[in-house]
Amino acid sequence: MVGPLSWLLASLAVLAVQASVLTLQSPRLTVSSSDAAQLRSEPLSLAHKVTPPVELRATDTLKLTFQIVDEDGKGVQPHQTFVRFYDEVTGEEGIQPVKVTAGGKAKLELNMARPPSSLPPSGKDPIKVSLYLGSFKHDPAQYELFDLFVPPSQPPAQHADEVFFHPRPEIFHTFRPEQKVPPKFVSAVFTLLLAAPWVVLLGLLAHIGPQVPYLFSSGIFPFIATLGAFEGLLVWYWVDLHLGQVLLYGAILSIPTAIAGKRALAAVGERRLGKSSPK
């Protein structure tokens, strides 16, 4: 059975482990150009920031190397290790995770030819670079590393469909002008032309006189009625119908008109034969 003293000692030991602080060993930054020439290489001090600030060109590469150790100088792999880029003026920030080996060795490489998406947009002011360490067994640690100037940010490439999401010009509908009506005199002339056949028909009816009732016989009148229907169809076309409708209705009306016309011719022939036969 564990006594109270043993439990207290164990608790103090746990607290001592949890209170241990992680530190960086041999931190160093290196700036190289595209041809692998070193432009700057110096150790980092955890007591104060690097001066002057680090400046990168569009083709430069920044390498940050260090080892994470505990109070005994033993390499430790924290549960979380990341670098924070922060612009104090705009408030933009970005987080870049750092891979750490089991022995605590870590390296971060920042290639400006292909900058990571975590890097905030650059401005006239420097970006603050900080290192954060998080562990379940050690106290969290934060180290202010250096100030960083990066090349001006380029505008993002325009998407092919981006133009469809911007305000478009207002659409104005152009309506067809009103249909022009011919002068009344022209309309009257063509109306008389359309009515001319009926005027001639009435004149002929007046000429034949006593034979008018024969036109209303069962053999002749249907043909006259279908002819009148054709005249009414033309008037309807003038007022409301379209050409396609007139052709359709005319084709349908032509069937009874042909039948009635054939019957009318037969009736007229029978009448003539009746008159010419000897009594």
Rank of each mutant, 00 (worst) to 15 (best):
L241D: 05
V189E: 00
G250W: 09
Q211R: 06
L193T: 07
V199A: 08
E231Q: 15
P213R: 01
P183K: 15
P210C: 06
Q211D: 14
L204Q: 13
T226W: 10
F185C: 11
E231N: 14
L205E: 15
L201S: 09
P183L: 03
G228A: 10
A225H: 04
T257V: 07
W198Y: 10
P210T: 13
L241H: 04
L202R: 11
K184V: 08
W238M: 11
L248A: 15
A196N: 13
G244H: 12
L243N: 14
L202Y: 13
V235R: 15
V268Q: 06
W236C: 10
G228N: 07
V235M: 05
H207R: 15
L227E: 09
T191R: 10
G232H: 05
G209K: 15
H242Y: 08
D240N: 13
H207N: 14
A229R: 08
S217Q: 00
P210N: 14
G232Y: 05
R263D: 02
A196P: 13
S254C: 06
P210Y: 09
G250H: 07
S254G: 04
I208L: 02
V212H: 09
V235I: 10
L241V: 03
Q211G: 10
Y237S: 09
P210M: 12
V186Q: 03
Y249I: 15
A206K: 15
R263T: 01
G219N: 10
H207Q: 15
S218D: 12
L202F: 12
V199Y: 10
G250I: 03
I220Y: 01
I252S: 09
L265T: 12
F185K: 03
I259S: 01
L193P: 12
P213D: 03
H242F: 09
F230S: 08
I220T: 00
Q245Y: 09
Y237M: 10
W198C: 02
G244D: 14
A188H: 08
Y214P: 00
T257D: 08
G244K: 11
W198R: 12
L247G: 02
P197W: 11
L201G: 11
I255W: 11
T226P: 00
G261S: 14
F223L: 00
Q211I: 05
L227S: 02
G203C: 02
K262E: 12
G219Y: 02
T191I: 06
Y237I: 04
S254F: 02
A266D: 06
P222G: 00
F185I: 08
V246E: 08
F190K: 12
P197I: 04
V186W: 00
T257E: 09
Y249N: 14
P197L: 05
L193E: 07
V235L: 15
